[in-house]
Design a binder for these strands. Structure first.
Lengths: 214, 214
DNA sequence: CATGCTTGGATAGTGACACTTCCCAAGGAG
DNA sequence: CTCCTTGGGAAGTGTCACTATCCAAGCATG
């Protein structure tokens, strides 16, 4: 497949594909001669994943490169590889240590994890970018005066644990580690928005049921 | 409170506050004379909401203005006002009608809603930006080759419905419509990331339980 | 009264980012 | 031989959220 055909089949302009090649988001094609390169289905698939990361997930090019590097790193074990790829995804900004709300938020998150019995998450703690961004988000809620304590969050966390269990079940259906890690990344950037859309749709449905349509 | 004090208490530079005033995201203070204006706690609170919208929610300034316009529109009824504010929040891009994956996605979403018995959501249908963006997201998943059919989504949708019911319960604790709409907006831009962080944390927890920590 | 501060208002500039345009030299096709 | 396509790289574009600078008008202090 030539560059132009890759462009036609993906709907991405040749200039943009060349940009992705330059940025290392896409492996170069097999060079046939000085002016021709051959691309295959794996390039098309990767290109679509890159588009999903950048356009749907709004992942900056530099972060996307990091994520894909881990996805392609076959020297890592399954768990590490998965964690590395997901942790490279951009999170909410890190908490402001100065802010007193941050301390309160950290305490609340700790209390939440204890209540839930999430020992592994407590153990990983602030090492995890996810944990840090959760603290930062709770701190923002507190600063704005919205209640965001362990009691409020616990039922939501329990729902998310059920979702996560289902996520991992789905993930286990993949044969190769590469496929699995790729699906986990796409799940994080593509399925999370689906989940959010379902959430908002559910709000509309529930609101319409309670208060009527008009 | 002077501009400088508003800046000090919010941690937002005076230049940025002036920018927000110019962009109409923040109501002008009470003008004491040609060179002095007085701001109060409501300005501080609104400023923090604006920051949350823009920095955490990554809402473009123009959209934030739309959202806040609806939040402040006391002439609207509660339900309309809420819907208007939430629909003004940026969604995933609209579906590409040309794409055959879009048709498949629309059918799948329709099937999902029928399965779940979400009659109101079906009735509103493509009028809702949320519905349209869900179709676009499912289309992207399909195009990438990940299964995203009604059967896959249904259990997640059910979880989200439970979350939505809880959301509305929380919302009903607010007295005034303005407070309620404001909390709904902040819930959409701030609590959704919390939910997402909980989701990823739950994935880490569940993954650690299944496959160990290292 | 002089000095130095803050304020509101306006304009232009900045930096990040995701492209996109332009140009070139090397092939290959007719 | 000529025209078109290809890959590759440098430079430009558009957007966006600020940010820097300037200005004239107060107000506060010595």
């Amino acid at each position: 497949m030539r560059l132009s055909e890759l462009s036609a089949r993906s709907g991405v302009s040749t200039a943009t594909i060349k940009y992705y090649l330059r940025e290392g988001l896409l492996a170069p094609g097999r060079q046939l001669n000085a002016t021709t390169a051959d691309y295959d289905e794996t390039h098309l698939r990767r290109l679509r994943l890159v588009r999903a990361l950048i356009q749907v997930g709004r992942v900056p090019v530099a972060s996307a490169r990091e994520v894909l590097k881990h996805v392609d790193d076959e020297s890592l074990g399954r768990t590490i590889r998965l964690g590395a790829a997901l942790w490279a995804l951009p999170q909410a900004p890190d908490p402001d240590e100065e802010d007193p709300a941050t301390a309160a938020a950290a305490a609340e998150v700790e209390r939440l994890l204890r209540t839930l019995g999430w020992e592994a998450a407590r153990e990983i703690g602030a090492l995890s970018p996810v944990h840090r961004s959760l603290v930062a988000l709770v701190a923002t809620q507190i600063r704005l005066g919205y209640p965001c304590d362990a009691e409020t969050m616990a039922p939501y966390a329990e729902l998310m644990r059920q979702a996560a269990a289902r996520d991992l079940d789905r993930m286990e259906t993949y044969e190769s580690d590469t496929e699995m890690v790729e699906s986990a990344v796409s799940s994080a950037v593509l399925f999370e928005p689906v989940l959010r859309a379902l959430h908002r749709l559910a709000q509309e449905e529930e609101s319409a049921r309670r208060y009527g349509l008009e």
